[in-house]
Amino acid sequence: MFEARLIQGSVLKKMIDAIKDIVTDINLDCSSTGISVQAMDSGHVCLVLIELGSDGFEPYRCDRNITLGLGLKALSVVVRCANNDDSITIKAQEGTDNINFVFESPNGEKTSQFEIKLMDIDSEHLGIPDTEYDSVVKMPSHEFQRICRDMSQLGDSIVVACTKDGIQFSASGDMGSGKINLRQSSLVDKEEDQINIELNDPVHLTFALRYLNYFTKATPLSPTVTLSLKAESPLCVTYPIGDFGSMKFFLAPKIDD
């Protein structure tokens, strides 16, 4: 028996909105420690990794490891039927080919039940190595979203460069070019408005903006985002989910021919 109740059901809605343009099907890998999802886009250019600890659910029950394959289209249709302040319970019995969703309003007056057929999804899992990054930059998530959106008006690719002077985003195309520089903040009122730059080594990488704009669909999940960069390696974009999980996106760089 698998059962997990998320008090803030809106978090599930936001997670699905964040990945539905990248992947069509996902496997929920459920164990006693929590739920994880790993899925790649069809071109194998980017990967989404969701990790949710069991302590984010009340109750959480997973008698034995179980993989639940779901089509995001059906999942998206169902979670849209939940109100933002509803709790969402996910239930699956062993040996059945359905997954159940129960939505409950905060006062308990309204409950809704939905069932989705499980799918057998053949997904490749990649081993993601522990990486010591050259630079790790934490910034407001809306700021990152704005930069990606603005830069994509100029070109298809963005160059991200971290030096002791800060982080620079640049793009160029037929129309012209643009650069945006961010420096480490000195004094800010709210921690979530802070720009924090850890630099071990200067780094300079190029990425396709199309994918970064998909990743920023996760902005409603968290006020902050972390970019982890290493020379000639995939970028890792991390959105924390409350204090119990995260959504990470990995993006393969563009490299000089």
Partner: peptide
């Protein structure tokens, strides 16, 4: 010009 790499180039299949 830049060409797009794939993740399988960096991360091994499990």
């Amino acid at each position: 010009d830049n060409s797009q790499t794939q993740l399988t180039h960096f991360f091994s299949k499990k």
